[in-house]
Simulated scan of single mutants.
Amino acid sequence: MSQSTSSKPLALITGASTGIGATYADRLAKRGYDLILVARDGAKLEQLAAKLSSENGVSVRAFRADLTDAASLKSLETLIRDTPQISLLVNNAGSILPGGFKDSDVEDIDNLIRLNVTSLARLSRVALDGLKTHKDGAIINIASVLALAAEISDPVYTASKAFVLTFTQSLQVELANSGLYFQVVLPAATRTDIWAKGGKNIEEVPGVMEVDELVDAALVGFDKKEPVTIPPLQDENKWFALDNARQALRMEFLQSHAAPRYK
Rank of each mutant, 00 (worst) to 15 (best):
S6F: 02
K8H: 04
K8T: 00
P9C: 06
A11T: 01
L12Q: 00
L12H: 03
T14L: 07
S17M: 07
I20G: 02
A22M: 07
T23D: 06
A25S: 05
R27G: 03
L35W: 02
L37F: 00
G42R: 06
E46D: 12
L48E: 05
A50D: 13
K51W: 01
L52Q: 06
S53P: 14
S54W: 03
E55R: 05
E55I: 02
G57V: 03
V58P: 09
V58E: 04
V60C: 07
V60K: 02
R61S: 00
A62I: 01
F63N: 02
R64Q: 05
A65S: 04
D66V: 08
D66R: 02
D66M: 06
T68W: 00
A70I: 08
A70Y: 02
S75L: 08
E77K: 11
T83D: 10
P84G: 05
Q85H: 10
L88W: 03
S95Q: 13
S95W: 05
P98A: 05
F101G: 00
S104F: 12
S104C: 08
D105E: 10
D108Q: 05
D108W: 01
L112A: 10
I113M: 15
T118C: 13
L120D: 06
R125P: 00
V126R: 04
V126D: 01
A127T: 03
L128I: 07
D129M: 11
D129N: 09
G130V: 09
T133R: 14
G137Q: 10
A138Q: 12
I140W: 10
I140D: 09
I140A: 10
I142D: 01
L146K: 02
L148Y: 04
I152Y: 14
D154W: 14
A159R: 03
A159S: 11
S160D: 08
S160Y: 04
K161R: 07
V164E: 01
L165E: 02
T166Y: 04
F167H: 08
Q169K: 11
S170L: 09
L171T: 06
L171Y: 02
E174R: 08
E174Q: 11
L175W: 04
G179Q: 07
Y181N: 14
L186N: 00
P187S: 01
A189R: 07
T190I: 10
T190F: 15
R191H: 12
R191S: 06
T192Y: 12
D193A: 09
I194E: 04
W195S: 06
I202W: 15
P206A: 12
G207K: 13
G207A: 13
V208E: 07
V208C: 10
M209R: 12
M209Q: 11
E210N: 11
V215L: 12
D216V: 03
D216C: 07
A217Y: 13
V220W: 14
K225A: 15
E226G: 08
P227E: 14
V228C: 15
T229G: 12
T229D: 14
I230M: 15
P231Y: 15
Q234H: 13
Q234S: 14
E236G: 09
E236V: 13
K238I: 11
A241C: 01
N244S: 03
Q247T: 03
M251F: 12
E252A: 08
L254R: 09
L254M: 13
P260H: 03
P260T: 07
R261H: 04
K263A: 14
